[in-house]
Design a protein around this nucleic acid. Structure first.
Length: 918
RNA sequence: GGGCGAAUAGCUCAGUUGGUUAGAGCACCUGCCUUACACGCAGGGGGUCGGGGGUUCGAGUCCCUCUUCGCUCACCA
């Protein structure tokens, strides 16, 4: 009986479920992810700060694959920079999500048969607060399951007292600078949420609708009339004019006259305005100032009234200036029912000339999908043009870059045409607008709440509106670091931040506005890099969503495959700016590759621990390079290559001189390339070749075994380092078990590998050995040689390999399952030949192994294929244009290749003859 | 309607300033339980680079055009 396994051995299978949560706890307990402001170079510390702020998920949110992707990307970058020696800070937090959260609580109330108006504002806000306190932030716990290395001691919330102070400071400062104003105009209104929306929150949807052509008779003329076209006939009740283009000859004689508004039966003027497009429809346009933003502008220009006929809930009810415009049987009707009714009335009266189906665009509420209604109201607006200027200049000059590159154009395009931002919302959940109206009509905009005494003395009433939730999100990089207290240690140590990672959907909602506020309040860009990743979609390329039921729950994936597998899949599959396609119906297909890779790492670890045990091998630095076997030199040089590739793929972490130089601007952040380079090293080089090469040496006592152990430990350790940012759990867990780890050391804080160099000469020998093995395997595969049949291969004309073969014979024969001999010339009889790239030939006699006729056919085929290619190559070389114009190095390479192919042709021809061919 | 992007193996994607016989992962086929790993090992098949035209000694790569998708902005009622 052998002794029981020692403590250094690993279980047969890695169990992520049993490992991940405990490991995360250990990280958190040790403060591995905590940033220390005093260590920042900006406040005299030793380390360069590297900071990211999380796109705050809605406080009511639960983790979905979109977060899985977004937060995995951020964590990869954070862990990389932390290992690379930066003082790394990742600020987590949540967004109070005004309308979204209010809608959730309203639904809860609805289940009790109540509306928010039944409970009243204060009680409703109280209830929402309580709801958030009880259920909010679940997603923050879920981020831990993903492995996110956030600094939880700095968790922020957009509606916390601290951040609310920032919101108020921001608004008042903008007000003082004249950048915020109260405007009376037509805005987007959601009749279900009962609030205004910004332009961005009212999303376009292509839909089909009816275009109604309605005749408006000219007053005082028996036969003349103007026909207008509208998709929204219900709004005609609020028409105040018909507009035509001033140079439209069809109508010039009617300008100044009056037409009769059907149904309402009042007279309205015909006016001329260049806004009207002569080419569209009949060239005449009805003007409804209260229910169309453009008509409102026209009305303003012409001094027209703005009667209101649709109320806040989208019903036909008279508002200001409406008088008796709404027929009695229409009053109180929903706007869409009214549309049908009015269409019928127009048809009955003969005023309806025509109606046609038409594709048009309808704006819907981004929160509840209700068709928004243009509505005349008083709102707070932020003047965007002056704020946008520095944000535009920043991207143009390269002090801020947007990846992928094409989004920069989109960003610039939007900022150039930017319009003022409606920031007030008529909901209850959010930061109350800090404006008080006094009895005497004065307006008080203030940072602090008025005292009770002031309220009574001045008769103050606070504005009932709250801010757009994006107004507070726009302050996120500032407010989470302590602004408006610019002397706050975090603010001085960590602002501006570095990289902002998010989805393109919120480029305008959020990213651009953070830029505006960064410059407006801190005179500095909030980050130097905006990385926009793709969207998680299903195999039909539909966005994953709850309503479509095509989602994947990341927690299910974590439970079944582990967080590392999930992270691996999204990172390895994430090309720059491309979408991540996952199959909700087949988790195995999507996540098995990640799990398999994790298992591979685990098994290399098992092998290593079984062979090294708990005796710490000598440090690599203590070993003279002359003692390294060729396999050692090779794997060490491959490690250097892998490090260089990973670094190149990850790219520059920051611009070194304020702005991105042209050559670096769009470099880096190729996370998929980084993942692939690290995977290839660990799997295809370390596991497939080095581990095999090192096996016999580990068993043999003496110095060489120790060298092998030292190298194996070194390269495995560094493979784990390279992979840690992507698969943090498995790598940390294995790294902890390696011999020689000081107590309390964490891979999460270990140094990122650097290229060391100096191994190459010896490494070449091992590459030749690999060629040899591959050659024999290929032949055995080609001829389907059974494992039990030996194939004694002969090496011809490769003197340099003779020595290498002697040094690695056991390895070569085990890997290729074939004895190998060195001979000065090829043996007689039928044989398979493999030309070695590094020179020489591998010859494998086939007598008794394979059908000679078959081999003859194979050689014949290879010969003709080679001749075809050679002919094309020789044609090119005979082309005077090519020889004269192509770069000499390329011509020379082609000539050498042609020589090689001719030699190969001779070999093949000789072989063909030897096999009895003609 | 304006702007931008994409179309390469069955799928998801690479392919650097034009230059070897266009690559990878997954899937597929064949053979292997080789003492870390069958969640594995070895080998293999598969692409007229969306269609057409042009520039060039040479085009997946540059230009024009068509088709099909996607993103984004927009005040044609």
């Amino acid at each position: 009986m052998t002794a029981p396994k020692d403590t250094t051995s690993l279980a047969e299978r890695y169990d992520p479920g049993a490992t991940e949560a405990a490991l995360y706890e250990a990280w958190e307990k040790a403060g591995v992810h905590r940033a220390d402001a005093t260590r920042s170079l900006r406040v005299g510390g030793p380390k360069r700060p590297f900071v990211m702020v999380i796109p705050p998920p809605n406080v009511t949110a639960v983790l979905h694959m979109g977060h899985g992707l977004n937060d995995s990307v951020q964590d990869v970058i954070m862990r990389w920079r932390r290992m690379a020696g930066d003082e790394a800070l990742w600020v987590p937090g949540t967004d109070h999500a005004g309308i979204a959260t209010q809608n959730v609580v309203e639904k809860l109330l609805a289940a009790e048969g109540k509306t928010r108006f039944d409970v009243g504002r204060d009680a409703f806000v109280e209830r929402t607060k309580q709801f958030v306190a009880e259920t909010g932030g679940a997603i923050l716990r879920q981020l831990r399951a993903l492995g996110c290395s956030c600094d939880w001691t700095r968790t922020a919330y957009t509606f916390s007292p601290e951040l609310s102070r920032a919101v108020r400071e921001a608004f008042v400062t903008l007000y003082e600078k004249g950048l915020v104003y109260r405007g009376h105009r037509v805005i987007h209104w959601c009749p279900r949420c009962l609030t205004s929306l910004s332009d961005e929150e009212a999303e376009f949807h292509d839909e089909s609708g009816m275009l109604y052509h309605v005749r408006y008779p000219v007053v005082g003329s028996a036969d003349e009339s103007i026909v207008i076209a509208t998709t929204r006939p219900e709004t005609m009740l609020a028409d105040v004019a018909v507009a035509v283009h001033p140079e439209d000859e069809r109508y010039t004689h009617l300008v100044g006259k009056r037409v009769m508004l059907p149904i309402v039966n009042i007279e309205i003027p015909v006016i001329a305005d260049t806004y009207v497009d002569r080419e569209f429809g009949t060239g005449a346009l009805k003007i409804t100032p209260a229910h169309d933003a453009n008509d409102f502008d026209v009305g303003q220009r012409h001094g027209l009234a703005s009667p209101v006929v649709i109320d806040a809930e989208g019903r036909m009810n008279p508002g200001p200036e409406a008088g008796t415009r709404i027929p009695a049987d229409i009053v109180g009707l929903d706007r869409f029912d009214a549309r049908k009714r009015i269409a019928k009335m127009l048809a009955d009266s003969g005023a309806l000339v025509d109606k046609e189906s038409r594709a048009h665009r309808v704006r819907r509420c981004y929160r509840c999908n209700t068709i928004v209604e243009p509505r005349l109201s008083d709102q707070w607006f932020v003047k965007m043009k002056p704020l946008a200027e520095p944000a535009l200049a920043a991207v143009r000059s390269g002090s801020v870059r947007v990846l992928p590159e094409r989004w920069e154009a989109v960003y610039i395009n939007w900022l150039e045409g930017i319009r003022d931002w409606n920031i007030s919302r008529q909901i209850w959940w959010g930061h109350r607008v800090p404006v008080w109206y006094a009895a005497d009509g004065t307006v008080h905009v203030r940072r602090d709440d008025p005292t009770l005494e002031e309220v009574q003395r001045l008769g103050l009433r606070q504005d009932t509106d709250v801010f757009d939730t994006w107004f507070s999100s726009a302050l996120w990089p500032l407010s989470t670091l302590g602004w408006p207290d610019t002397s706050a240690q975090d603010f001085r140590a960590f602002y501006p931040t570095d990289v902002l990672v998010t989805a393109p959907e919120i480029l305008f909602f959020w990213v651009a506005r953070m830029m505006f506020f960064g410059y407006a309040f801190a005179e500095q860009e909030p980050f130097h890099t905006v990385y926009l990743h793709g969207t998680v979609r299903d195999t039909q390329h539909r966005k994953m969503s709850k309503s479509l039921g095509n989602g994947i729950d990341p927690l299910d994936v974590i439970k079944l495959y582990g967080a590392d597998a999930l992270r691996w899949t999204v990172i390895a599959g994430l090309g720059m700016g491309t979408d991540v396609i996952l199959d909700p119906a087949d988790l195995e297909k999507s996540f098995a590759p990640g799990r398999n890779f994790v298992t591979k790492l685990w098994n290399i670890g098992r092998f290593l621990l079984q062979n090294i045990g708990d005796t710490t091998p000598p440090a690599l630095s203590s070993i003279d390079t002359s003692q390294l076997a060729s396999a050692d030199a090779w794997i060490l040089s491959r490690l250097d290559a892998a490090i260089a590739e990973c670094d190149a793929a990850l790219g520059p972490s920051r611009p070194e001189s304020g702005a991105w130089p042209a050559g670096e601007r769009f470099r880096g952040m190729r996370l998929d390339e980084y993942a692939e380079a690290a995977r290839r090293f660990a799997w295809n080089e370390l596991a497939d070749w080095y581990v095999e090469a090192v096996k016999p040496r580990l068993l043999s006592p003496g110095n060489d075994g120790n060298v092998a152990r030292a190298v194996l430990l070194h390269v495995y350790d560094h493979a784990l380092r390279l992979l840690h940012p992507i698969v943090p759990f498995i790598t940390e867990s294995l790294w902890q078990k390696l011999p020689g780890r000081p107590a309390g050391a964490f891979l999460a804080r270990a140094a990122w590998p650097t290229v060391r160099g100096g191994w190459s000469t010896n490494a070449r020998e091992f590459e030749r050995v690999q060629e040899l093995v591959a050659g024999i395997r290929q032949i055995r595969g080609d001829y389907n040689v059974a494992p039990s049949v030996p194939t004694p291969a002969v090496l011809v004309g490769a003197d340099d390999l003779a020595g290498a073969l002697e040094a690695n014979r056991a390895f070569v024969e085990r890997m290729s399952r074939s004895p190998v001999a060195v001979a000065p010339s090829a043996p007689a009889g039928p044989a398979a030949h493999v030309v070695l790239r590094g020179g020489g030939e591998l010859v494998l006699p086939l007598a008794g192994i394979v059908d000679v006729a078959k081999e003859q056919a194979r050689v014949s085929e290879e010969l003709s294929s080679l001749e075809k290619q050679l002919k094309s190559l020789e044609g090119r070389l005979a082309n005077t244009g090519f020889v004269a114009k192509a770069p000499p190095a390329i011509v020379e390479a082609e000539r050498r290749k042609a020589d090689e192919w001719r030699a190969r042709r001779e070999q093949l021809a000789a072989k063909h003859r030897a096999l009895g061919g003609t």
